[in-house]
Design a protein around this nucleic acid. Sequence first.
DNA 1: TTGACAAAAAATGTATACATTTTAAATTAG
DNA 2: CTAATTTAAAATGTATACATTTTTTGTCAA
Lengths: 213, 213
Amino acid sequence: MLKKHQLYNELKQDIQLQCWAAGSVLTQQQLAEYYGVSRIVVRDVQQALLSEGWLEPHGKAGMQVPGFSATEAQELCLLRLQLEPLALQLAAANMSFSQLGQAEDLLAYIAANKSLAPYQRGELNWQFHRLLYQSCAKPHLLRLLDQLHQQVSRYLGYQEQALAYADTSAAEHAELLTLLRRGDTEQAGKLLVRHITEAGNLLVQFLQKQQGA
Amino acid sequence: MLKKHQLYNELKQDIQLQCWAAGSVLTQQQLAEYYGVSRIVVRDVQQALLSEGWLEPHGKAGMQVPGFSATEAQELCLLRLQLEPLALQLAAANMSFSQLGQAEDLLAYIAANKSLAPYQRGELNWQFHRLLYQSCAKPHLLRLLDQLHQQVSRYLGYQEQALAYADTSAAEHAELLTLLRRGDTEQAGKLLVRHITEAGNLLVQFLQKQQGA
DNA sequence: TTGACAAAAAATGTATACATTTTAAATTAG
DNA sequence: CTAATTTAAAATGTATACATTTTTTGTCAA
């Protein structure tokens, strides 16, 4: 029988992989039966996923799997641009070489495993970014960034479109590390802005095309 | 018998008013007995308050009432400065006169009731700010701002120190409205930055003094 | 006295049962 | 046949009971 955090992970992933289609209304009973757990557990998990944007309220019965919109993706990109460069700038001052090393290990690991599942790759990429911001010592800022990442990662279940971008992305990550090691915070910040903007534009364009069709 | 949202409001307010001192560990049973509700309800409310920063995890038993620190207040101010001017700028383009009117009504109401409880005054002040940002049409940005406000308002339970600032604050609010009505987004943004910075500094200084003692 | 181990008490997690609310259906009056 | 009101079904909220985990207390041996 599934434990709470297991159900949390499974349901989240099932939503990301669109096993539950956007727009579906998921009731407690339905999920409890499907995953073989008690309704209480479902309630807790639904509540958690609700506060993280993986589910939306739906009147008084059930919760709804949210859809995708280019507008929302654009907003998320805007917020990343507003907060991540700040986090990087603040972190740069306190960043240790061991952290830069950890980040480099992550890049190497991603590069070595060419055939990771999209959502795994996305998760590791975020871990890389997260590592760069870690030293900013601003818990609330980091919390907001984690939330934003959750929202963005919901969009990256798709992510066939992002595979084309993987190489560019990896190259920019490496360059980011070089600049940080050199202490060139200024350039690192500018690169990060480009990096986020590019990824955002790619996603937005993809969604716009899809909305047109 | 208290309903869920009633318990939510009462407990939150009791924390803000320091009926439960910072550092206290609140168990489900304790709260269930004290407020005369079932543990299930307490669980839900605790979870909600946890995600909003009114409670913190505490090992595996109970949740802890968080304390106050000048550093945290500083961070919250920084984040407000990073996000609220952006929201105002985006909102300015779409702002209607009826919204400006609503905001003005709010100011008048606050001015008329000199003897509001501190937390009520704080709530109304935020409603004013919120109204100015509303038209930005960025749900996630507004959500983040609401979260930040919750965090800040936790600090304003104190707020004897903020009473001295009330007049200045009201004057700046009025000036903000004048600038917006005139369409001078640029100046309005600058004033907002000053406004948030001043309030932040006052709070931080107050906390620093208190930490010294 | 101290440290470790065992037993009991307390707290949380989870399931089941019941109550309330909401939604859908069905029946009836116009 | 339509609309409205009533009735049944379904979903969620809440309480109680049980299971599991954690913490504390107490005892015994070194």
